[in-house]
Design a protein around this nucleic acid. Structure first.
Lengths: 346, 346
DNA sequence: TTTTAGCACTCCCCATATTAAAGTGCTAAC
DNA sequence: GTTAGCACTTTAATATGGGGAGTGCTAAAA
């Protein structure tokens, strides 16, 4: 399946043409529009070969050809190389400017990611997503335990990003605000700066070490504390559902429905991100069938982690049709991820 | 425009028929389906009269007739009377059962309203909404001020419903955690149980009374405190966008887009609720053009306040097409609003 | 061996015509 | 006031027939 240079060019031309306008692409059009110096019959032969290789298909005999997922993959690899090679001054300038703008929001993550996803969606008309830092992995800034009613306690955790999470837990026994304050003091003075999962781990070994495992009061309290410090990942920002509704790819309402349903279901959405490595430098591109969740097999995702210093915190992404303007999408995700990283890293 | 009994029956029949199936309604169909003992020509005459009165219209000559907004209004008034009159044992039983179920969630408002809006949407295939209690009007349970970075302070407010809100504010001067604790203590011991707006008001008059108005440190701190205790209303739950996508009324994507855009814009959504009185007992029904916000002129809203004891806290609502199953929608909103009220009032 | 010109063939799309069905409005009779 | 009957209107569905875009193949040219 080695393609010669000309075949590659034709393949990319077909993909680009289809991205530009969702219609079957003909040989004559390719020849003229992309300035090939051969006649349409030659292009035709090449396209026929590309079809044999699984890059193109015809909706029916005697129609033009459409790209398969494989073609998109090939195309994306191609332009992505290009992009990395020639990342221009202009992009750097864009990152600088955006960084300045986002820096003002660095202390308010909600606004920061609201702004980010909205701008991304606005600029592309695709769906802008952002996965917030996992509370469990970020450093504890402070915890408070507040007695609510009866044996209910509200645990409030502030992490070093200024994100506030709270949780209502059952204490299983009457406990005074006084005692809760002591508990909070204990945690704050011993564990500030540690990540929640580290803290839970340490509490656990402490329980074990001191042989107060299953019975006494302190053990109960520490266990409650463990529970209070567990937060499953659930914070995703999604913007621009109404933007994608204008795309011809979503004129079929069933596709829209898939997206809307997935958005509504946070757990599913989180699952989408699970297969995207957070620790890599590169932009990750997922096309159609490569998608980890069934519901998004019709779409493509451009995702990139954002970091603070060198630690990856979360992911910024665009979700759009497979027939997406990858050039633009890649560039924008890149710019935003880098800018957020800069803004957070000071 | 007095309609005689028969005309009313015909009008209701037309509306009901159209709600059942979105097609122009013919005279013969009405006669047979709704068991009128006159021939179709008579119905035809009545329908012609109803058209003159502005209740019906024809999409084109020689087609059946469709209800106008006025017809929906008439119909809804009619069935609403009916509903109030004959509220059955069954409904009471439903409320009891649902109350039991929701009571388990009473201490976690997020889950409570998530569950409520989802169930409402699931049962009707319309959009389920719930407006949470306004932080500003609910009683303070406790406030905490947490020093974050530099001169940033995170204010965390817990109200008596167990809802936690937070806000990042600039202190404009260095302030220690010690001082913040004193401030929090001060607010907590003086104002626990008071509503945030009362507290702000009182802080203001205190400032004024003590003639420390514009200058010294305490004044600055109190002003920061005032700012920290202000939360604009913004908490709305919306469920089931993907449910309405199956309705024939939304096969036009432009209509869907209106809804999706409105949902995304919390402020607009809040505005929707502004014209719905929270303090009334009754279920409020808003049809088409009666809608306060432009974007929802194509839809109808069934809304009802929920309360704790006798104090209104917020609103539960369904948004659907004008061609909505009002009977069902009214009943369900009624059941849910009453059940939430019961669950919260113990 | 590769490319090109030429041509027959396929299939979709669109515009037009035709027909059946549903429903009205009107008139005259009950 | 109500009904039967009928002419008329409009839509929706179904056929009909080019026109156009594009392919695949063959034979000749490069």
């Amino acid at each position: 399946m080695m393609l010669d240079e000309r075949a590659k060019k034709v393949l990319c031309a077909v993909v680009e043409s289809y991205i530009e306008k969702p219609e079957p692409v003909g040989s004559r059009y390719i020849m003229k529009r992309y300035g090939f110096d051969v006649c349409s019959a030659t292009i035709r032969n090449i396209m026929s070969d590309l079809e044999d290789e699984g890059f193109l298909f015809q909706p029916h005999t005697s129609a033009g050809r459409l790209p398969t997922d494989r073609a998109y993959r090939f195309y994306v690899n191609y332009i992505f190389q290009e992009y990395l090679r020639k990342k221009t001054e202009e992009i750097k300038k864009n990152i600088e400017n955006l960084t300045k703008k986002l820096r003002k929001l660095r202390n308010d993550m909600n606004s920061l990611f609201m702004e980010t996803t909205q701008s991304l969606s606005q600029a592309t008309k695709y769906l802008g997503l952002a996965l917030l830092p996992e509370t469990d992995k970020t450093a504890l800034h402070r915890v408070d335990f507040i007695k609510f009613k009866d044996d209910l306690v509200i645990a409030i955790v502030v992490n070093d990003k200024g994100i506030v999470k709270n949780k209502i837990i059952k204490a299983n026994h009457e406990i005074s605000q006084q005692e809760l304050n002591s508990l909070a003091d204990f945690v704050n003075s011993n564990y500030k700066g540690k990540s929640l999962d580290e803290i839970r781990e340490d509490l656990f070994s402490r329980l074990k070490r001191e042989k107060i495992f299953w019975d006494n009061l302190i053990s109960k309290i520490l266990k409650m504390c463990q529970e209070a410090l567990y937060f499953s990942r659930e914070d995703v920002f999604v913007s621009g559902l109404y933007n994608i509704m204008h795309l011809p790819d979503f004129s079929d309402i069933e596709k829209l429905r898939e997206v809307a349903k997935t958005i509504q279901d946070r757990h599913l959405l989180i699952k989408l991100f699970e297969n995207i490595p957070e620790d890599e430098e590169e932009i990750k591109i997922i096309i159609g069938d490569e998608n980890p969740i069934e519901e998004f097999r019709n779409f493509s995702i451009i995702a990139s982690p954002y970091k603070e210093k060198d630690k990856s915190l979360g992911i910024i992404a665009l979700v759009g049709p497979k027939r997406m303007d990858y050039q633009k999408a890649i560039m924008l995700v890149n710019i935003f991820a880098k800018s957020v990283t800069n803004a957070l890293s000071e």
